[in-house]
Amino acid sequence: MKNPWKKISDKEIYDNPWIKVEEHQIINPSGNEGIYGKVHFKNKALGIVPLDDELNTWLVGQYRYTLDEYTWEIPMGGGLIDVDVLESAKRELKEETGLVAASWQNILRIHTSNSVTDEEGFVFVAKDLTQGETAFDDTEDLKIRKLKLSEAVRLVMSNEITDSLSIAGLLKTKLLLDEGKL
C-alpha cells in the first residue's frame, strides 16, 4: 500500500543511550501540513515466558519509575538492534530469573505503540529450564514470583498485569498451549 504521508523535514529534539526523539514536519493524508513526533528506541523489546513441565511460569516485579507504580511482568529487557534477539532474550532470562532454557520458541513480534514509536518487540517461550543465579543490572531491584501460567493469565484478565508485552506474551502462550502448538 502506498504511504499517504509526506515528510518535509525532520530534526532531532532529544537523544540519550536508550531513545531518540524526532520532530517531523509532514503533509498528512488529507494534504494538510503538520508535525509528527517520533520516539526511536535504540533497543528491541524482549519478553520471555518461561514455562516448566508443570505449566508454571515466572514473573518479575519491580517499581517502574515512569508509571510511579509497582508492576508484575514477564522477564524482559532490551536487546541491541545489531544483536540477535534470541541471544539477547537468553541473556535477559538469565539476568532476571537465573533460569537457563534449552528450548526456545519465538511466538510474537509486536509494535509496542505504533502511533508514536518505531519500537519493535519479540516474545519467546523458554522451556527445559535449569535454575541458576540471577545477575541483576544496577538499575534493577527485582522480585521473582513462580506461579501457574493459568494464574498469570488470571492476573492479566483482572488488570493486575498491565504491561503490553506481558499481556500479549502470556495470552498468546495460553492460546498456543490450548491449540497444542507449544
Score class of each variant (00 low, 15 high):
residue 79 G to L: 03
residue 116 V to E: 12
residue 79 G to W: 06
residue 68 D to Y: 13
residue 97 T to S: 12
residue 120 E to Q: 15
residue 80 L to A: 12
residue 98 G to C: 09
residue 74 I to Q: 06
residue 53 D to G: 02
residue 115 S to P: 07
residue 127 K to P: 05
residue 41 F to P: 00
residue 142 L to Q: 00
residue 85 V to E: 15
residue 119 E to K: 11
residue 53 D to R: 10
residue 41 F to T: 09
residue 120 E to D: 13
residue 128 D to M: 05
residue 54 E to H: 05
residue 52 D to A: 01
residue 145 R to L: 15
residue 75 P to G: 03
residue 92 E to P: 01
residue 145 R to N: 14
residue 108 L to S: 05
residue 119 E to T: 11
residue 148 K to N: 14
residue 95 E to I: 01
residue 142 L to V: 02
residue 40 H to C: 04
residue 55 L to G: 02
residue 99 L to A: 09
residue 69 E to M: 15
residue 42 K to W: 02
residue 75 P to Y: 01
residue 67 L to G: 01
residue 141 D to F: 15
residue 92 E to L: 13
residue 106 N to F: 15
residue 58 W to A: 08
residue 113 S to V: 11
residue 46 L to Q: 12
residue 89 A to Q: 08
residue 105 Q to W: 03
residue 105 Q to Y: 05
residue 108 L to W: 07
residue 101 A to P: 01
residue 149 L to P: 04
residue 138 D to M: 11
residue 144 I to K: 07
residue 123 V to S: 05
residue 58 W to G: 05
residue 92 E to Y: 07
residue 140 E to Q: 09
residue 113 S to F: 14
residue 102 A to D: 13
residue 73 E to T: 10
residue 102 A to F: 08
residue 125 V to G: 03
residue 45 A to Y: 15
residue 142 L to I: 06
residue 120 E to Y: 08
residue 43 N to K: 13
residue 53 D to H: 07
residue 138 D to T: 03
residue 107 I to M: 10
residue 87 E to I: 10
residue 39 V to H: 06
residue 43 N to P: 01
residue 49 V to S: 00
residue 84 D to S: 10
residue 80 L to G: 13
residue 42 K to H: 08
residue 114 N to A: 08
residue 101 A to T: 01
residue 117 T to D: 04
residue 132 G to A: 00
residue 41 F to E: 09
residue 68 D to E: 15
residue 44 K to L: 06
residue 113 S to C: 11
residue 61 G to M: 10
residue 60 V to F: 01
residue 114 N to H: 12
residue 134 T to S: 06
residue 137 D to F: 13
residue 53 D to T: 11
residue 114 N to Y: 12
residue 71 T to W: 07
residue 94 K to C: 12
residue 86 L to N: 08
residue 71 T to M: 12
residue 107 I to E: 06
residue 133 E to R: 01
residue 92 E to W: 08
residue 49 V to Y: 01
residue 87 E to V: 12
residue 149 L to E: 04
residue 98 G to P: 07
residue 69 E to R: 15
residue 53 D to L: 08
residue 83 V to Y: 12
residue 109 R to C: 10
residue 137 D to E: 14
residue 129 L to Q: 01
residue 107 I to N: 05
residue 80 L to W: 13
residue 81 I to V: 12
residue 136 F to H: 12
residue 112 T to M: 14
residue 119 E to L: 08
residue 119 E to P: 07
residue 91 R to M: 09
residue 80 L to V: 11
residue 50 P to M: 04
residue 101 A to H: 00
